[in-house]
Design a binder for these strands. Sequence first.
DNA 1: TATGAATACTCAATTATTGAGTATTCATAA
DNA 2: TTATGAATACTCAATAATTGAGTATTCATA
Lengths: 188, 188
Amino acid sequence: MPRTQTPLSLEYILLGFLNESPIHGYDLYKKLRNFEGISLIWNIKQSQLYALLDKLEDVGLLTSKIVPGEIHLMRKEYQITPIGRQTFLKWVISPVPHGRDMRQEFLAKLYFAQISGTEISNKLIEEQTRLCGEWLSSLQASFSKTTKEQYYERIIYQYRISQVKAMMEWLAYCQDEIQNQFSKNVGG
Amino acid sequence: MPRTQTPLSLEYILLGFLNESPIHGYDLYKKLRNFEGISLIWNIKQSQLYALLDKLEDVGLLTSKIVPGEIHLMRKEYQITPIGRQTFLKWVISPVPHGRDMRQEFLAKLYFAQISGTEISNKLIEEQTRLCGEWLSSLQASFSKTTKEQYYERIIYQYRISQVKAMMEWLAYCQDEIQNQFSKNVGG
DNA sequence: TATGAATACTCAATTATTGAGTATTCATAA
DNA sequence: TTATGAATACTCAATAATTGAGTATTCATA
């Protein structure tokens, strides 16, 4: 059985929007394309969206029903199932296991975490910072094991080390920003 | 015609090794798996390798011939074609257009550039640094266009800005390292 | 003489992706 | 009134990518 199913984070983003309220394909498409910060980190083709929604329904994370729309007769409205909700919530609070997933997946998690409030986003940021710290130690250990001759390998490790350090500084900045935003909303 | 062919950088890595000398699939596989710094940045499945070699042959970047091996009767040896060489050389000296391609594709380019000597690698690093500078300006411009309310968007831009800044510092470090390595080899 | 490792490659199954389509309704203006 | 185009809402067939699991031979060694 080649090509075993890879759970893409894009799927979780769809679940995330469906977690807020039932929605049908075309509205979700517009939401993802136009507004919402998510459009900064992910682009989706319309046909891909419908394919993913079908897939999520197949595995039981969504259900759908045909509702009579105001304009059109047929609108397929999707709703999240309890399992879908559970799957999504678990995803949101889990830090990403690899640095390469920060760029899109972590930012997507943070979007939903930040909507849910400071406790959730703080928790996520703290957990992710801890993991980043582990990556850093591991990279520094690998770096120190290299010999002078392996200078290409050393360059690679230095690249990763510098990226992870930048991530950690940014995570700290992030927590402050979200905290500030929150206290402003409460105070004002 | 859906799914138009995306030229993956992995293909160029194969061309890069074939640019050094003709080689057959299994040897190339071992090279990519075991030694060579490339194994730090890319993993390849055996079946994927053979599929890619076939594809590169189909588009005329490689040719193959069956040679009688010492151990086995059949060995399919691949050679790079003039067009393949040209394609590869053009790839090596071109900086990557997006930050997301630094992690794997740029590091791969740098591997081959650094083998070719300091002039090539210096050129690549300089061009890439220039491009990074452009990304940075563009990101800073986008950031300054956001309002206080768009704090999620601001966080995203800050993430990218911090990553690009780290890249630029690393590129400078890189150039020094390669230079040092070079002068050591000449001096010693 | 059998066991396993290394050599060298093949293939069918499956998922992922997308260009291009369909069909309806609505607004606008010539 | 009748075209024109935009928006709504989805569908599908074609192609590309990926990979688990094979095949078949030779070699070492116990």
